[in-house]
Design a binder for these strands. Structure first.
Lengths: 223, 223
DNA sequence: TATGAACGATACTGGTCGGTATCATTTCAT
DNA sequence: ATGAAATGATACCGACCAGTATCGTTCATA
């Protein structure tokens, strides 16, 4: 409910923010993001954030309207960074197998990173209290990855060796992208989230390879 | 740390539990399961559980050793029930497509049920505090489903129309089962967990159908 | 039925936390 | 420079909560 708007009572949102104020505001958000991601909403107290970031609780109410506003701002800022390596991967000119393998590796490495796992855990627990954040996570996560896969698939299938075939219905490509995403991420992510140790390099590579082989089989069989 | 053992201090664990006591013990666990699953560990107070279930806080310490013990007992009891319809599904004698479709439907319906979603959300948030529960969830969830798929695949491939082929390496079948599981559950489960409305019947059926088609393509191509 | 253990209700304790109030200090526009 | 606004530090309030203590009531067994 509370964004960056002013608090209901007490200190008003400043109309003329100081340079120092802006720095404190940013510092609070960064520190809060670390702590919230690591230990969840209820696991972190405002006093702890203030102690680690400097400033005072007064700032939190002036800048973010309260604990909930700070949480939303901190998480939203952290969301975009998780899949950065995937969206920035350059796959132009790569053949189907090579490009999918590279994208799949980037995805699984991003998803199994400690930060992504912690963010996932924190967000899923707070989707009830902050529905907007849940939707934002899906958009910045699975939806973004699938779009990246679909973009590459469309190019690779249009320009591939079997270019004589149908160029690939967009919806068919979207399904393919979704299946690939799920085959790469599904099980390894679940295990990383619920068990203690995430999968090692070999297991990740094997999962990606299996998913790539499956997509190739689907492509070869498509009519 | 605390199972059903006695509390560290205060009232000791009774050596001769009364009939009424047993009933209260069960009622506490059932009510606690509902509340914990719905609102998480921190979201429920002992007073609330006691008020809803009858009995008194004293029982919680006598029977379960404290809040953590009650949480573990309640969640563990709830774990086994989620995938009941999947493990009880009878697929003997069914062909590949029909059996996979039935199993896939059972899986997705179980995973998207409100109870399973709430349990998933609660557990994932508490995996840090209760690692044992996270592992138990994976074992009772994905691992169980995959085993069910693998069992059916082994039978179907051995007895199928193309029985003349290799009977199917067990590890190959396990990979196939994992891929099928992930293709059925992955995206729809993510969306249900993070967005507000779970997918409808049509979308579920489409996801299952796509996964079944993919498995058929893989089976046809295997060598 | 008598008796000791198990159980239920309730109040209390020590601690934590979100949010507010207060006041001293710093910043910046004039 | 100067004063009004912004910021920092701190104390405080009310609410909540896990866990304990106490005592009256109920049950099971002998």
């Amino acid at each position: 409910m509370a964004g960056e708007a002013g608090a209901s009572t007490g200190r008003r949102c400043p109309t003329r923010r100081t340079g120092r104020g802006q720095a404190t505001c940013d510092r609070l958000r960064r520190v809060a993001a670390c702590l919230f991601v690591a230990r969840g909403y209820d696991g972190v107290s405002l006093d702890e954030i203030v102690q680690a970031a400097g400033g005072s609780k007064t700032n939190i109410y002036a800048f973010y309207g309260g604990k909930e506003g700070l949480f939303v701002a901190a998480i939203e800022a952290a969301l975009g960074e998780v899949l950065r390596p995937l969206t920035e991967a350059d796959t132009r000119g790569l053949a189907l197998e090579e490009g999918l393998t590279r994208l799949g590796q980037a995805l699984i490495d991003a998803l199994l990173s400690p930060k992504a796992l912690a963010l996932h855990r924190t967000l899923i627990g707070e989707t009830g209290r902050f529905p907007r954040l849940g939707a934002a996570w899906y958009a910045a996560g699975p939806a973004t990855s699938q779009a990246a896969f679909a973009g590459f698939l469309a190019r690779a299938l249009a320009a591939g060796e079997d270019a004589g075939r149908a160029p690939g219905d967009p919806s068919e490509i979207a399904v393919l992208a979704r299946l690939f995403h799920d085959m790469v991420a599904g099980d390894l992510q679940q295990r990383a989230l619920f068990e203690t140790e995430p999968a090692g390099v070999a297991e990740r590579a094997a999962a990606v390879a299996a998913a790539v082989r499956a997509v190739e089989a689907l492509v070869a069989r498509r009519g």
